[in-house]
Amino acid sequence: MTGVTYSWDFSFLWIYRWLLLKGLGFTLLYTIGSILLGLLVGLLVGLLRLSRSWLVNLPLIAYIEAFRCTPLLVQIIWFYYAFPVLVGIDIPAAIAGMLVLTLYTGAFYAEIFRGGVISIERGQWDAAKAIGMRHAQVLHRVILPQAIKRMIPPFINQSIIQLKNTSLVSTIAVGDLLYQGQLITSATYRPLETYTTVACIYFVILFPMTLGAQVVERRLQRSD
């Protein structure tokens, strides 16, 4: 019955505050980095996915579905351990982690982007073309300004999930928040306090963001 009488003590974590902070720094770096790079990938892939050519679409669909339909954890491990064997180059864990997170979230962003564009009524294309706009102009002046509004809520959701996703890079020894938690645990044998603290840090960052997302979503709805 020792579990019941477990005496909680968080005080030892104070010694490790800089380690946790460093971990948090890595987590934020991986989140922001993979969101920005993923946006680039998603924008490019999403735009190309609008093409009518099968030759263009087929490899892109393969990429998107490969990353959406396999677990991120498996992707990280595969890229770190299996991919180097295939191509014969060692990829440092830090780069493998960022690469996979980018490709993973990029696949989701691509679909958000494409979904936003194709959700705009056909008539908008007709009207813009009828006054002589070229394809790129239609996208720039008419479709994207409307589509971006519809993309923002799913984009925010995906990005919030992405912050949690970064914790999986700890499995290949990238020093993110969870990884530092593991280090602290193995040094102190106090997983309860450590992981509770780690969980709280994630929560403290993400909860205000989800509240913010709701505000943005409501404001977007009102402006329709």
Binding site: G123, A127, A130, G132
Partner: peptide
Amino acid sequence: DRELAAFRARTGMVFQLFNLFP
């Protein structure tokens, strides 16, 4: 695309569902 756009620019069209840019 360029040829089509130039052609359409000289031809006005009005649609059943207006299709104004919201």
